[in-house]
Design a protein around this nucleic acid. Structure first.
Lengths: 253, 253
DNA sequence: GGCATCGTGCGACATTGTCGCACGCTCACC
DNA sequence: GGTGAGCGTGCGACAATGTCGCACGATGCC
């Protein structure tokens, strides 16, 4: 067994210390804890900060884990694995709800549809798998953005395009929608993406409760919503139940 | 600005590729994608595997992100920050429920109590902040173990001590309790830790929906439960609402 | 003000990381 | 079955990089 790269090993020790130690640490504390000379620890930390795996508070000079590392964790499962785990439940949801079902994950500011189940009737439908839909305009996307603040910021920074008159196009409007989604634990989008159509979606949680995907139904507004354009509770229950079942599978034993 | 440690930079590029690329990748694909010689890529990967940041499927020789990295992400907030964010809501929960409140996080197989609010009456109470309670025996702990499978495995491997006749002491009993917790989104423990006392707890979710702590109430069984020893719905609602409010704060804008 | 400690960065040089190469294994094609 | 191509793995030479002592400026305490 050939040698390992010492500097990478050391960087992992630093990261573990930041993650499990008493919190924000100083260079000296890190160096002492790991038995490294101060300069060595500092070189490692400087690099970790540069790559986004650690962050330093300029006021106190203390270090903590960085967003770049958290971002990595949040995409720990790939599209194929998400799809494989969601397949059967997505089919069942289409049967129960009578609507078409999509499973998606955030990708480059949009939602990549990793699985699509047609509405269980003989209507004309086109296959959506592989397509990318706008996150801010769809229920799938709202669920994903609600739990991934950095992605939400990116989407806002890129500009919130209007697809219909009901698409949220301001930071405030989107923030309100995302807050509501977090409060309810599911999302509703009424004519945000396509006129006359609505979507209900719920989060898919992986290891540690991490939101790594979303499952949702979509169909005509009058079928998904009551007369006050609120989501029909029975449909919400179906979507949330399917999301929970998939999440149990994703979270492990 | 002095130089950065190149091998650490390269390891981060590999990790990002594993996280955002098409999924399970081979040495050659990684080397080509990053413009590195095959041997260099392999040295980096061998090290990443050794530190747990990457894993290789022995059958296919393909690499993916490792559990060690996901573990880091799940403890990205420290106890002080958790406490600061939960303070006010914990006080409000004690007022509304009329019971004492604890906020905790997993630490070395137990639950570290990071904040404790006394029951809002004049009864004799002792300060619990800083103490560590057994994860498998308490509602706080059940919530945390329900969403952190690796920690649950560790706790089981360390042995499930009995504190009362109702403490779950087998893998099956604990797994059942954790599954129920995940299904409901909150946990109940009746006389699992102390005779005559019960606890109701719900998860605190951070960035990405990650469960990084729990908040709960505890008190006499007859006050927390109905005659069938089921949690009183009004109390569950209070706990879940507090958990949600704190989670909104923890998740960012 | 003096002293101790810390974080940061420079630069010498020893150690470590890089990486070409060889080998065994697997797979596809004839 | 035989052959060739491509891959993953590991060895080892050596150049490049990482290590780390030291100096300096900033901060806090007495």
């Amino acid at each position: 067994m050939p040698g390992l790269i010492q500097s990478i090993e050391r960087s992992s020790a630093v990261l573990r210390l930041l993650a499990t130690g008493p919190g924000r640490l100083r260079v000296k504390e890190i160096a002492d804890a790991l038995g490294l000379p101060k300069s060595t620890a500092q070189s490692i930390l400087r690099t970790l900060v540069a790559i986004g795996f650690a962050e330093q508070d300029p006021r106190t000079a203390r270090y903590r884990l960085g967003r770049g590392l958290l971002d990595l964790g949040s995409t720990g499962l790939d599209a194929n694995e998400l799809r494989a785990r969601a397949l059967n439940w997505a089919d069942a949801l289409a049967s129960r709800s009578g609507e078409e079902v999509h499973v998606g994950a955030l990708r480059d500011g949009g939602v990549l549809v990793v699985h699509h189940v047609f509405r269980p009737d003989d209507s004309a439908q086109s296959m959506d798998t592989g397509s990318v839909v706008p996150a801010h305009a769809t229920a799938l996307g709202r669920v994903l953005l609600a739990y991934q603040a950095a992605a939400a910021e990116d989407v806002i920074a890129s500009g919130l395009d209007a697809y219909t008159r009901r698409t949220p196009t301001t930071r405030q409007a989107l923030a309100r929608a995302l807050a509501e989604t977090r409060a309810q634990g599911w999302a509703l989008s009424v004519e945000g993406w396509q006129a006359g159509r609505a979507g209900i979606a719920a989060p898919l949680r992986s290891y540690g409760g991490l939101v790594i995907g979303a499952i949702g139904i979509s169909g005509p507004v009058e079928r998904l919503c009551d007369t006050r354009r609120q989501a029909r509770p029975a449909l919400v229950d179906h979507v949330v139940a399917a999301a929970r079942a998939i999440s149990r599978d994703l979270a492990g034993p």
